[in-house]
Design a protein around this nucleic acid. Structure first.
Length: 932
DNA sequence: GAGTTCACG
DNA sequence: GACGTACGTGAACTCA
């Protein structure tokens, strides 16, 4: 019955991408039971296709196609690089489903087309115009307003969700003009979703008014001077180029080069075998049955596999004891595994290396897992010889794949955007792979999933997670490597042992992934994971790999100076004590101070030792000379051992730089921790300590730039607790501590004394920390009653703060978690405990949303930073909670500061609209001391 | 390995 | 009325 498209024919064009996104967002994240493949969007897509088919049975449709977008780069990006630039990345669990929606369309025996470099809308436009020219009709199954310009004689749209036809009248209702002028209105109004700029200040209503008055866009722009309203006139004149560009962006291309014709789109009946086969493979039980009935065929039997992940407590289909772990020793076997990975669309991957330092450790082997209970290990550089064997040769163990051969096979899979690589702490593995020219993307991380789900409840190490969520105790690395001096490195572990250990790690990681993935959605932290955790991994990896230059000579000189001073102080201290003792021992010092010298106020802690902390010694300094000397000695000792000495050992011999490691899941609040070395606690408060920052320097020809958020936590408090006076003060750029003092003590700002301001500052900080009279009294060294008086007065002046605290505590008691403005959850399991623990929990619950929201804000800035500075000669090096440090080529300072500041100050947008401005201060210099 | 102290935001 | 007390970290050191 083949016939040429023409009069009397009716073409249906389905907007495939719209179907996919609707399906994805309408459904919970379903997974295929047998293997956990994410399948929700495919399921919804098939349902929509089936409903479409049923709805059009017996209708007049003669031709039909589903049209998809292909690739992210189109000719519009060449016109305007910001086009659709503000779109979120595709969710990771949707990505592997995209090719399956094509398969689904073909399984329904419906034509399915996409063309590289063009949006689906352009293909639809081209086909609609052709259909009309050939005298037929066309219905576009979509509600996308960008397609409305096509409506007209012979062409209409159909909103499948609302079951609603959109003709010329519908378009006029939406845009206020006929379809032929829709692009003119869109060009003026712009589109925030697609990032089409348009004319600022002009929306659809105004645009329609203007177009109707002047006829079309070109005439309007020519005669813009005549417009009476000054703002509109100015906007049109000033933004003429931008408006014309916008028109090009919204105008669909009706001449897309097609590699098929309308005649190829003729309606075909589905072939039951093909369709049933596909549905059965996807394991859609209900849908398979329904369609089988409609087609009057037998529904295939879908085996009832136990459901991994459906029950978090028992996700295993294969007991660990029955797991099968292969040793991969040749290319054929590895290719088989890679084939399995492509079938699934995901793989759990783990690296074994010679050490814990990801900047220096060498790759020893790789393990992979795609099915729980079936994993493999690829030994690559295991060496012969026992740990104790001093003459242990460096000869490689026989029967291993060549490292480069294995990487060559793995690299395409690791870089393939359709394959999700799952790891536990993937930053480590990604950094190792990066050193072997094997970039890995996209990734999923079970440690970070646990962090999004369980922050505040427990740690997120793999062994703990395995015991807690899988009920399985993993093989301990210590049993393989030993401990202490006799410990060996992984390359000396016998291959058989390594297979059991390493393959199990990948197996565990995959099972954790199956357990956590559905929980993200149930616990409503998918957004946190997808926007604040997952995308930060590559950013941190990049920063850590880059490192910061540290001048060894500067540190070494300071170290010697400190040693000399300490020796002098030590002699003085012994002299004052009348005996020699270890100044570094708090126990011995306590005995000298309180037993021998009989100084007052000796208090023993729970262990029976005297407290000798800085606050105690400061109080004693008025009584005796010795405590003051000890304080000086301690400061120097700290600076020397922790900074000037230890830091030198952290200079990487290959790069000459120091590479910290950020622990993304380190702090329960959403902050990060820095370790090996910790570069988030480099001294600054004391003059002597601050000089250590002079050793952190820029490379020759470059300079350091530090940008930090000003008072970010107080600003967030002002917003969250909704305190008008504080918000106004921030809007007016006032000194917030002085303003607080003025409000509290009724002192005019001009008469403010530094001491009153200092007290107010302490209170402001106290509020953020969950203030108590006792704590404030100790901090300010004032009587407790006086401190309590301050707090009472503060709450009187800012009653909203008290309400916020009470509400937060009530929420935490009820739910046992608190939340940041971005939805991060911090669990507070001790809220309903008895005794002093409840006090701790309360204060932590008050602090966590504030500290956590600030942490979320800077994370968002960091995630956006690589794109923002891609074309600038600079690198982001460090994060210190509210500060970012960059190394910049000399001369580009201004540009970088302006770009970075823009990202940081707007980092909360568009998810959270803060009532207070975020302000970023910037500094620049040859070293960190001067840049700050 | 726990406890103490102190560096940072 | 008595508990105890500012929030969040990491590292070095002593001592059992």
């Amino acid at each position: 019955m083949s016939e040429t498209f023409g009069k009397g024919c009716h073409l249906h064009l389905i907007d495939g991408s719209a179907f996919i996104f609707r399906a994805y967002h309408a459904l919970p994240p379903l997974t295929r039971k047998s293997d956990g493949l994410p399948i929700g969007a495919v399921s919804g897509f098939c349902n929509m296709l089936q409903r479409y088919v049923e709805g059009n049975a017996g209708g007049d449709v003669t031709h039909v196609a589903v049209i998809f977008d292909k690739g992210s780069h189109t000719f519009r990006n060449d016109l305007y690089d910001q086009y659709k630039a503000n779109r979120d990345a595709m969710p990771e669990d949707l990505r592997p489903q995209i090719p399956l929606t094509r398969d689904a369309t073909r399984a329904f025996n419906i034509a399915c087309h996409e063309i590289e470099g063009y949006e689906a809308d352009d293909i639809i436009a081209t086909l609609a115009v052709q259909a009309r020219a050939l005298g037929g009709n066309c219905t576009i199954i979509s509600s996308d307003k960008d397609l409305m310009q096509l409506v007209g004689e012979g062409v209409e749209m159909f909103d499948a969700m609302k079951n609603n036809r959109i003709g010329v009248a519908g378009v006029e209702e939406k845009f206020g003009v006929g379809p032929n002028r829709v692009v003119d209105v869109q060009a003026l109004a712009g589109d925030s979703v697609d990032n089409v700029p348009g004319a600022p200040g002009i929306g659809i209503k105004t645009a329609a008014l203007l177009i109707n008055e002047y006829g079309d866009l070109e005439t309007l722009l020519e005669r813009a001077e005549e417009i009476k309203q000054p703002k509109r006139r100015q906007s049109l004149i000033e933004n003429k180029e931008q408006i014309l560009l916008s028109k090009k962006l919204v105008q669909l291309d009706e001449n897309t080069p097609l590699d098929f014709t309308i005649d190829d789109l003729e309606v075909r009946d589905p072939e039951p075998d093909v369709l049933m086969g596909f549905l059965a493979e996807m394991e859609f039980r209900t849908l398979t049955k329904r369609i089988a009935e409609a087609l009057k065929v037998e529904a295939p039997v879908i085996a009832d596999a136990p459901a991994p992940g459906s029950d978090v407590d028992a996700p295993d289909q294969v007991a660990f004891a029955d797991a099968k772990y292969d040793c991969v020793t040749n290319a054929e076997a590895l290719k088989t595994w890679i084939g399995r990975i492509y079938q699934r669309g995901f793989v759990a991957i783990d690296t074994e290396t010679t050490g814990l330092d990801d900047m220096r450790a060498d790759l020893v082997g790789i393990s992979l897992c795609v099915d729980a209970g079936h994993a493999c290990y690829i030994p690559l550089t295991h060496k012969e010889g026992e740990a104790s064997d001093l003459f242990g040769s460096d000869k490689l163990v026989d029967g291993q794949m060549d490292l480069e051969e294995a990487l060559t096979l793995l690299r395409p899979m690791m870089a393939d955007p359709s394959i999700v690589k799952i790891g536990q702490n993937m930053k480590y593995d990604a950094k190792i792979f990066a050193r072997y020219d094997a970039p890995i993307h996209p990734i999923d991380d079970t440690m970070l999933m646990s962090y999004a789900l369980h922050a505040g409840l427990h740690n997120h190490g793999m062994d703990g997670l395995s015991e807690r969520y899988l009920g399985h105790t993993p093989i301990s690395i210590k049993t393989l490597l030993g401990t202490g001096k006799s410990a060996i490195t992984f390359d000396r572990v016998p291959v058989d042992d390594a297979v059991r250990y390493a393959a199990e790690d990948a197996d565990i990681t995959l099972r954790l992934w199956h357990a956590f993935k559905p929980k993200l959605h149930v616990n409503k932290v998918t957004r946190v994971y997808e926007t604040l955790e997952r995308p930060l991994v590559p950013v941190l990896a990049q920063m850590e790999r880059h490192g910061i230059k540290v001048d060894r000579d500067v540190l070494s000189r300071m170290s010697n100076a400190f040693a000399q001073k300490m020796a002098g102080l030590e002699a003085e201290i012994q002299e004052l004590a009348g005996q020699s003792f270890n100044v570094g021992s708090p126990k011995q010092l306590g005995e000298i101070l309180f037993d021998k010298l009989e100084l007052p106020g000796g208090k023993k802690g729970k262990t029976g030792a005297y407290a000798t902390g800085a606050d105690v010694l400061e109080d004693l300094a008025t009584e005796h000379e010795l405590p003051g000397r000890v304080l000086d000695w301690r400061q120097l000792s700290k600076l020397k051992s922790t900074y000037t000495d230890a830091l030198q050992d952290h200079i990487n011999p290959d790069t000459g730089r120091v590479h910290t490691s950020y622990v993304q899941s380190g702090a329960s609040t959403g902050r990060m921790a820095s370790s090996d070395p910790n570069l988030q606690n480099i001294p600054i408060r004391s003059e002597e300590g601050r000089r250590i920052r002079e050793a952190f320097v820029a490379e020759e020809g470059k300079t350091l730039i530090a940008l930090d958020y000003s008072q970010i936590e107080l600003r967030i408090l002002a917003h969250m607790a909704d305190i008008p006076a504080l918000k106004q003060a921030f809007h007016d750029g006032l000194d917030i501590h002085a303003m607080t003092a003025s409000e509290m003590f009724n002192v005019p700002l001009e008469e403010m004394t530094p001491d009153v301001r200092r007290q107010a500052k302490a209170i402001n900080f106290g509020v953020i920390y969950g203030i108590s009279g006792f704590g404030l009294a100790r901090n300010l060294r004032i009587p407790r009653a006086e401190a309590q008086g301050f707090i009472d007065r503060y709450f009187e002046r800012f009653p909203g703060i008290k309400t916020y605290m009470d509400d937060t505590i009530a929420f935490a008691k009820e739910h046992e978690f608190v939340q940041t403005l971005f939805g991060r959850k911090i669990h507070t399991p001790e809220m309903n405990a008895k005794g002093p623990r409840a006090g701790f929990a309360k204060r932590a619950a008050i602090n966590a949303p504030i500290q956590g929201t600030a942490a979320d804000v800077i994370r968002r800035a960091m995630i956006r930073m690589p794109d923002a500075i891609a074309d600038l000669p600079c690198k982001m090096l460090l994060q210190v909670h509210d500060e970012l440090l960059f190394e910049v080529e000399e001369g580009a300072q201004e540009q970088v500061i302006s770009a970075v500041r823009n990202i940081m100050e707007n980092a909360a947008d568009p998810v959270v609209k803060l009532d207070v401005p975020l302000i970023v201060d910037a500094g620049e210099g040859p070293n960190w001391a001067q840049a700050h």
